[in-house]
Amino acid sequence: MKKWIVPCMIFTMLACAAARAEKAPSLWLNEPAPDFTLESAEGKKISLNQFKGKNPVIVAFWHPQMDVSIQQLKELDKVLKDKAFKDVKTLAVTFGKEVKDRDAARDAFKKAGLDFPLLLEKRTDASATPVEYLVSYLPAFFIIDKMGNLAAPPVSLVSEKINGKSFSSFLKDILAGKKVNACDFAPEPRTDEPYKNLFAMIGKPAPDFSATDTSGVKQSLSYYKGKRNVLLIFFYPGCGHCRRELPQLHNYNEKWAAKQGVQLLAINIDGSDAAQPEAVKFFKLFDMKFPLINQGKNAINEKYGVNSVPTLFLIDKKGIVRNVFVGEFAMPGDVIQCLAGKMK
Rank of each mutant, 00 (worst) to 15 (best):
A299I: 03
K227E: 06
Y223W: 12
K83Q: 14
D287L: 11
R243T: 13
R102F: 03
K255Q: 13
A182R: 03
K227V: 00
S136W: 07
L246N: 13
Q248V: 05
I58L: 14
A92P: 00
N307T: 12
H250P: 01
N181E: 14
L264I: 07
S308G: 11
F36G: 01
K225D: 01
L38R: 11
A33Y: 04
E278I: 08
M331S: 13
P247Y: 04
F167S: 02
M288V: 04
P332G: 09
L48I: 10
E31R: 10
K178R: 13
L339A: 09
P139D: 07
T311S: 12
E193A: 11
N163M: 07
K23T: 15
M201V: 02
S26I: 12
M147R: 12
I58N: 00
N149C: 09
L246R: 03
L91P: 00
P207T: 05
A17H: 04
T94N: 10
K89M: 13
R322F: 08
K342A: 09
K178L: 04
A112I: 02
L171E: 01
I293Q: 04
E328S: 14
A151R: 06
K2M: 09
K111F: 02
H63N: 15
V158W: 04
L38Y: 15
D208R: 06
N163C: 10
F51M: 07
R243M: 08
E160K: 14
D115T: 11
D273P: 11
A17F: 07
G216S: 06
A274Y: 09
K110C: 03
N268T: 04
K179V: 08
A257L: 09
L175Q: 12
P205T: 00
A257G: 10
V131C: 02
G261W: 02
K161W: 06
D192Q: 05
E302H: 13
S308F: 05
